[in-house]
Computed example of a mutant assay.
Amino acid sequence: MKSLNFGPERYSTATTDAPHELAAAVNLIEKAGLLSDDYDYAFWLRKVKEARFDHPEEQVRLLIEKMLSTKAWLLSKRGEAMNCGGWLTNRLKEQANGP
């Protein structure tokens, strides 16, 4: 039986644009549009690191989904605008402080 040949091109192309899991999580925050001059990439990277998630990309994805659904609910039911950056920062702080 012929063995599989794993060529060097397999290791030279990245599977993601993020160099590590924390950066991948911050890329999701960037896609959600939460980066600004004051709350830049380094700020969010620090907050995600402080939260000490086991799988930061997955956890941040779930938080963003919950944030967007909460934002839609507040807008439709109460007619209120939500500060998404503040909401996400508070959830990350809660995770960093522990249960």
Rank of each mutant, 00 (worst) to 15 (best):
M1R: 12
M1P: 08
S3I: 05
S3A: 13
L4S: 07
L4G: 07
N5A: 05
N5E: 09
F6V: 09
G7D: 14
G7N: 12
P8K: 14
Y11L: 13
Y11H: 06
Y11V: 03
Y11K: 03
T13M: 12
A14L: 05
T15W: 10
T16C: 05
T16A: 04
D17I: 02
D17H: 07
A18L: 03
P19L: 03
P19C: 03
H20N: 07
H20K: 00
L22N: 13
L22H: 15
A23N: 10
A23S: 14
A23E: 15
A24C: 04
A24S: 06
V26P: 11
N27Q: 07
N27Y: 08
N27P: 01
L28H: 01
I29E: 11
I29D: 06
I29N: 09
E30T: 05
E30W: 08
E30N: 10
K31F: 11
A32I: 01
A32Q: 04
G33P: 02
G33V: 01
L34G: 09
L34H: 07
S36T: 15
S36C: 10
D37P: 02
D37L: 10
Y39A: 03
Y39M: 14
D40E: 13
D40T: 06
Y41Q: 09
A42H: 13
A42T: 11
A42L: 14
F43D: 11
F43V: 09
F43M: 13
W44S: 11
W44G: 11
W44A: 15
W44I: 02
L45F: 14
L45Q: 11
R46G: 02
K47F: 05
K47N: 06
K47D: 08
V48P: 02
V48N: 11
K49W: 12
K49C: 09
E50A: 15
A51C: 04
R52T: 09
R52Y: 07
R52K: 10
F53G: 02
F53M: 06
D54S: 12
D54M: 11
P56D: 14
P56S: 09
P56L: 01
E57Q: 13
E58Q: 10
E58W: 05
Q59R: 12
V60A: 03
V60K: 00
K66I: 14
M67S: 12
L68Q: 04
L68A: 10
S69Q: 01
S69K: 01
T70V: 01
K71T: 12
K71E: 15
K71R: 10
A72N: 06
A72T: 06
W73K: 02
L74I: 07
L74F: 12
L75I: 09
L75F: 05
S76D: 03
S76M: 14
K77T: 03
R78F: 00
G79W: 07
E80G: 02
A81T: 06
A81F: 02
A81Y: 04
A81Q: 05
M82A: 09
G85W: 11
G86M: 07
G86P: 12
G86C: 08
W87D: 12
W87E: 06
L88C: 03
T89H: 15
N90C: 06
N90I: 01
R91S: 07
R91D: 00
L92S: 05
K93W: 06
E94T: 06
Q95I: 08
Q95D: 00
A96P: 01
N97Y: 11
N97P: 00
N97I: 02
G98A: 02
P99Y: 11
P99F: 07
